[in-house]
Write a protein that binds this DNA or RNA. Structure first.
Lengths: 227, 227
DNA sequence: ATATTTAGTGGTGCGATGCAACTAACCGTG
DNA sequence: CACGGTTAGTTGCATCGCACCACTAAATAT
């Protein structure tokens, strides 16, 4: 196979990035509260439709696709994101009507408070998605699956909470993601011994009842997984 | 940001796939025995250097990047591969001297017997890699990490063994990948109850000593992971 | 004071896992 | 042909982690 002719006859491939920006609404008691940040497309194709924030990779300004994803988020959301991770790459001739396309998809996590800036009508529940442009529903499905999966063995979900949070909030979050209520005692023991949170000395969240100790995330931890 | 001008002024991005084809040599007692199938490049850049099997995505014939990876493997190895999984996508302006490139990287697993077809001098130990073209050493590192990781919670490693194998061989393999010797009793109990292998009735592997029952893989299984 | 609600801690029984001893089957050797 | 060596495969036990449940603590409301 000749490399030169291979390169010369190569048709154009569209190279884009898409970001699944996830957050969680701990107030909503029904469902898991997971929400995804969308945009409304202002150009063809799918003009006027809802879609994931995304766009072309700009070789002259992007250092790599992760940088492109950051740039997209910054222009569409006006801020740097808390956590960003590459999810997977989707490709094919028919997923974009403009031609054969490759989309490197990223998952971003943000807490609900910060996401207040995002227009409320563009924050869709992931368990009741509106019609979306391209194959974006698939990308969201993959992102949510990844997040749920990582919840079972990592500290990743802390990025869905504000800087400080109570252990009850953290437990509630894990319970939602894992789809099963967790035991208070076991959860606290686990979290403590894994040491991915630390107390904020003297900081308490007071409500109607007994005040709760506030915590903050320490380092990112991935737990052991044994066969 | 105007989509049309965005698209029109878009410089060419090289879109390629690379495959990290892994196998394991259970004979080699030192190290873990993991090996990666390489090719020797017959064209610039890096002409004559060792590299991963890979190549351009061909939009007119490839249904997606996974199909491109299969095609690359078929042309370079002459056969379909046992297991193929997308690893990650690597990108940037400097990883390929020809220009800004995106490489969708795949991990492939094959058993040692089948890999006998691969030229022996192109089957490198992953813990002692020769100098490689592009950033391919990085891709191999990521692939090996992924494999080791999945060994701790999935049946994935069975794809590194022939169709039938003994439980001792399977245990040896897991022990190598996990980097720690496993207990015979516990391992067998686990494998049995997870049920991802089944006996081949009446088939035994006879050596100098007591013959061992042969097993074959059932369905692909991923185990539970709990926080 | 007392009820209510949420925060947070301790104890206990069961199941999974690790460890070690045991049996089984084959081969080679004197 | 008995015996030792080696690998296959099982069984029993002891221990550790974890789910479950009961308890105490601190606030508010009436």
């Amino acid at each position: 196979m000749n490399m030169k002719s291979d390169s010369a006859m190569r048709p154009k491939i569209l190279v884009t990035v898409d970001v699944v920006l996830l957050t969680v609404d701990l107030e909503s008691s029904l469902s898991d509260g997971l929400r995804v940040g969308l945009i409304r497309r202002d150009a063809a194709p799918y003009k006027g439709a809802l879609a994931l924030p995304g766009g072309y990779v700009h070789p002259e300004e992007d250092e790599n696709t992760a940088a492109a994803a950051c740039r997209v988020l910054k222009t569409k959301a006006g801020k740097a994101v808390r956590y960003l991770e590459q999810l997977a790459t989707f490709s094919g001739p028919s997923r974009d009507p403009r031609g054969w396309s490759v989309s490197v998809c990223y998952v971003a996590l943000e807490d609900r408070e910060t996401m207040k800036q995002w227009p409320a009508d563009l924050l869709a529940r992931v368990d009741a998605l509106p019609p979306l442009a391209f194959d974006h529903a698939t990308l969201i499905g993959a992102a949510v699956e990844r997040l749920r999966n990582k919840a079972s063995y990592s500290a990743l979900p802390v990025f869905l909470l504000p800087d400080t949070f109570t252990l009850s909030e953290l437990q509630d979050l894990y319970g939602r993601l894992l789809g099963t209520p967790l035991d208070k005692s076991s959860f606290r023991r686990k979290v403590r011994e894994l040491g991915f949170v630390e107390e904020v000395p003297g900081a308490f969240k007071g409500g109607q009842n007994r005040p709760a100790q506030l915590y903050r995330a320490k380092e990112m931890t991935t737990f052991d997984r044994t066969i």
